[in-house]
Design a protein around this nucleic acid. Sequence first.
DNA 1: ATTCCAGTTACACAC
DNA 2: GTGTGTCCACTGGAAT
Length: 496
Amino acid sequence: MAPKKLNEYERKRLENIRRNDEMMASLKLQSMATRLSAASIKRQRSAPKPKRISPKKKPKNDNLVVVRRSLRTRGILPDSEGLDNDLVESPAKSPNSQTPPSKPSIPKMGPLSMSQAFLDEGSDRALIETILSIGKKSELGVDLGAETDGVRVCKEENLGVLRNSIKKEENEVGGSFSLYSMTLNPENVARVVQDRIMTLRFFPCSNSRIVVAGSKGGDVGFWNLDHQMEEEDGVYRYHTHSGPISGISIHRHCLSKVFTCCYDGYIRSMDVEKEIFDLIYSSDNTIYSFSQRSDDMKCLYFGEGRGDLNIWDERTGNCATQWTLHEDRINSIDFSSENPNIMATSSSDSTACIWDLRSIDADKPKPLKTVSHKRAVYSAYFSPSGKFLATTSFDDTVRVLSGDNFEETSWIPHNNQTGRWISPFKAIWGWDDSHIFIGNMKRGVDVISPAQRKTIFTLQSPHISAIPCRFDTHPYNVGMLAGATGGGQVYMWTGS
DNA sequence: ATTCCAGTTACACAC
DNA sequence: GTGTGTCCACTGGAAT
């Protein structure tokens, strides 16, 4: 269908929007002139739009009586004394929660209560209880304790044990794992948010199957595949940001906190124990990317504005470090599992770089290695072993770096022209170094073999009704791959 | 060298 | 099944 030219009305409307933006920018500039240089402001946040909240609002629940699923029926110990305390602690909030139909607005500052942000009818109690219960059990049965005093340090030996157990698992299952066993069952499809999914992440927990999706409109959707209430779908939505959510991070050793970052310049931390989305960082610049090191749950690494990388430290509550590593936005940040001091960034300046965090010169940062693409690079991810790096670019290639110093490069052609409405593809690694997954424009998932340097297989299914563009692998369930679309759906492949 | 603009893309929803 | 609105990405070429 031939695209229409804008008519007069639309053109005027866009013109108005642009003028408003400019006006906002100039107003903002005056008020911030002492703090910021004008050059650092690429684009101002627009005022919080009256969000188009789903008018339908879960009509499937005819009876408004909320049926709760008890902990017992889920085989979970009733260990939630702290929960009741928390509930009592915030009685002032409960009147709000009695009027859920009104659309939640995003407070500019400070924490946002989960009940205030909750978009669906019914209750999110089951989700909260589930996350609390999995958060309390660490993978190794080690109680990580409460979130105070920085006592909860991951003991190195525990980390080591964990790493070994993961590696062992991968090696064992890796042999028997077959791509061809991966299937998409119709019950493993859900609409998790209303609009385009920008980012998708599994809870890194071996005995749960929960994915978290961040949408373009600022919603965070949780999908618990193990929900046991027949009349519910296991999906819980919150409106926590006023712009596209560009990153989600859940640390392996702190499962009760879900960090989200957003184009609106805010970073929030969902604290299930306090039942809030806390505001932990705000900036006037866009935040495009977000990551945590496996060996440090106190720090957040994020890409802000045109090429800056910031490190936020929970202990001080602010950013001690800011480097300008790129000439344009940083689209991804990743750390080597082999050595978390080794970091990879990808950028719209058409490069991806590998850095050694121990030796970055703040004035003249020099990467260990630069990968030059012809167009913007959207991702640069280390393989599970840390021996390879895969980059994805708008120049229609996926490149794989290998060798002791990543000196060898091979490239695989792949159509990455996602256009305006689909989030750009980002090739991710499977559960070992042998497979790379990436979406394709024909509603499938291409599987690239780095060894064969080509696409060897495409996952397809009649249940896919849109292009899967963002993915995550379950870190413990080999064969479980989640794909997200521009329409808010998540597809969950399972394998063996 | 910088800014502007048209054109591109897929999807949900209303009809 | 068709038409319309989306609009925070990017490109290449035209205009400044």
